[in-house]
Nucleic acid binder design. Structure first.
Lengths: 251, 251
DNA sequence: CGAAATCCTTGATATAGATCAAACCGATGG
DNA sequence: CCATCGGTTTGATCTATATCAAGGATTTCG
């Protein structure tokens, strides 16, 4: 719960990290975003890995944007079964304008810094500034598409396909962030424990572990330690994932 | 593919059926919607039960709102595995501003009438009329919540819970449409074949059939014929569905 | 340094749901 | 009236994944 006040300069490596609006690439519209007004109502907050940002049902009087780190949205049934329903990377938006309480548990998977906005003034700003609604609409539509892809995975893919899909998704987002374009030999760290992956994929952690081992044995992925992955052939991975090969990065 | 031009009067039983913006209840904001301009660019189109409205990947130069009937959004893998990712009831919105091609197969499950808007002028109208973006954002956020609920179902619920959940969802939406409030003894028709339910739930049609039989045998639902359901005790059904009992109608 | 805690892997077994197969039911049409 | 067809039910069997169980690797902490 440590509250940290960061200088904006610390964040400048992240394009537009200081506004809650995500941009696909370089920010071409910043001038529209009335940063002055945003300045007045925003604050930064940091969370340690493993810390819960907010519990489902809790009062949530802010919206936020992830600046650094990775957070998850999960739903839990009374008997403890858990399903991840959102994976939040830097620049992703958290919270829903017009809702009083959190609908999901939000958890910091790694150390996380969030840029928060008190909800009331943010909503007033939204009402005055159409470009915010419009941008938020685009982002929400992207998330809806991702959710639907995820539904196909949950409903119809085998355990092996699920694992391959997740690794592809993480690899792709990672590649996008680090500007390494379609170059081969993608390498990155899995930011999730086996259990979190299981919650993402609707599997048990044992099955996750077994399938990762199987993909390694079959040469689809290379593993250094338990978390560091390199993909020798991304198309092969996509095949294993059962995906249409289009790539799907851009809507 | 028959193109039908309906008089608006035919649709008046549906609140705001003639605009693409869904309202939760009675339309309190119609005056904001610039119906005059919408008038100029809209047209109606009807589809027969079973007909495909549009195939994934096809060029889609309109957006639309379901006026009557039920349509589905499905994703298909190369080997034919299918997952439903959207169930469209009257007043639901179809299509994505800013996208050229359809991302999913859209199929009419019953006879369907849609109110269509050519995309280009609709987008121009959106740009000029903030309330449309704002309303669309609200609707999309609702859909995202529904998708996340659906993800929990797909990833973690048992077959019996999935069936109970689906029946509860349909019953609830049906009750909402027909103004029958929380009155007991909810009765309605399942608008989906067993196969479509299977595609919704990530099951096979045989499992769907078996679990429906089981729920009938256990008195959770009553069946008349193959489609007509009555729910003697909605809370019991929700219990079977593994849901938090809150109801969840309003965000 | 040793103990405890996480996280992960692997094995043995159980089971929910898939698959394969057959037959039923109600509607439609010749 | 019978044949056909789409949708459905039910049975027998198979299998992918869950569950139960044990142990290995790292890190954390006293």
């Amino acid at each position: 719960m440590a509250r940290t006040s960061l200088l904006d300069d610390n964040l400048s490596s992240q394009a537009c990290a200081d506004c809650p609006i995500r941009h696909r690439a370089v920010c071409a519209r910043c001038e529209q975003h009335e940063l002055d007004r945003l300045e007045a109502i925003k604050y930064y907050r940091s969370y340690e890995a493993g810390q819960t940002v907010i519990w489902s049902g809790d009062r949530m009087d802010f919206v936020a944007s992830v600046v650094t780190g990775i957070a998850t949205l999960t739903q839990t049934m009374e008997d403890g079964r858990r399903q991840m329903v959102g994976l939040l990377l830097p620049s992703d938006f958290v919270g829903r304008p017009g809702r009083l309480t959190a609908a999901y548990d939000v958890t910091a998977t790694t150390d996380v810094v969030m840029c928060c906005f008190r909800k009331k003034p943010f909503e007033e700003l939204m009402a005055r500034t159409p470009s915010i609604s419009q941008r938020l609409l685009e982002m929400t539509l992207d998330e809806l598409d991702a959710a639907r892809e995820w539904m196909l995975l949950l409903g119809r893919k085998t355990a092996r396909e699920k694992i391959a899909s997740l690794i592809a998704i993480i690899g792709r987002r990672d590649a996008a962030l680090s500007l390494r374009s379609a170059g081969n030999d993608l390498t990155f760290d899995l930011p999730l424990t086996r259990e979190a992956m299981a919650d993402y994929l609707g599997l048990t952690l044992e099955t996750v572990s077994r399938q990762i081992s199987a993909l390694r044995k079959d040469g689809v992925i290379l593993l250094e330690g338990k978390r560091h992955v390199t993909i020798p052939d991304f198309d092969r991975l996509l095949e294993e994932a059962g995906d249409d090969s289009d790539g799907g990065l851009l809507a």
